[in-house]
Write a protein that binds this DNA or RNA. Sequence first.
DNA 1: CTGTATCCTGTTAGATACTG
DNA 2: CAGTATCTAACAGGATACAG
Lengths: 114, 114
Amino acid sequence: MTNDTFKLDKCPMTRTMAILGSKWKPVIIYTLSKRHLRFGQLAAQMPLISRKVLTDQLKELEEDNILLREAYNELPPRVEYSLTAKGLALLPILQQMCEWNKQFEGHVGACEAR
Amino acid sequence: MTNDTFKLDKCPMTRTMAILGSKWKPVIIYTLSKRHLRFGQLAAQMPLISRKVLTDQLKELEEDNILLREAYNELPPRVEYSLTAKGLALLPILQQMCEWNKQFEGHVGACEAR
DNA sequence: CTGTATCCTGTTAGATACTG
DNA sequence: CAGTATCTAACAGGATACAG
């Protein structure tokens, strides 16, 4: 679903899904909503995602202007990720997804379940 | 993203995305929101989806109780699809996806753009 | 009319080892 | 610390032909 061609689709839903519709992106966005995080902190909060995939997803989200990547030329290097306004505006949608799931599939966990 | 294992994920967002996150499902749900439709009518309104994929997606949505499939034993056969309450409850989320896209990526088309 | 069956391709994401 | 590089498996989606 993250294929770039879908971002050119005529349907706004399809275009949004092209940005949001991969396994980890909603979780990454939600995790970054609470505070700016460094790469390692993000990885620590999502132990099930491999570092390669996390890197890939972060790069795509940056290209879509969902998040901001700030690299500091220090040793050891430090990179901070944070949501842009465009990314912050996705949070109500993610919130509704949580609520829909809890309403129709029982209260298995909270949105913080990661 | 439609893998069944994701539906067992602890995160409610991931579980919702496992149901909603494929190329055509949002469009199918939106198309069915206006009225009950037969298989051929659905296919006609979404000329870009192949019949095999449409069948697959409808089957999955039925298994997830998003839509209702009613088959009439006539000749020629007739099958009608409609949204369940659970499926109808997804519409506000899809609506928000449309609005988010239009707000941040310009007004390329309406939700009806299919 | 409403699908199945079969085959095929590109993409996603995971494992593992390595780098500035 | 924050990634790259490489390889691989699984999956989603599409083309085409056929069936009840």
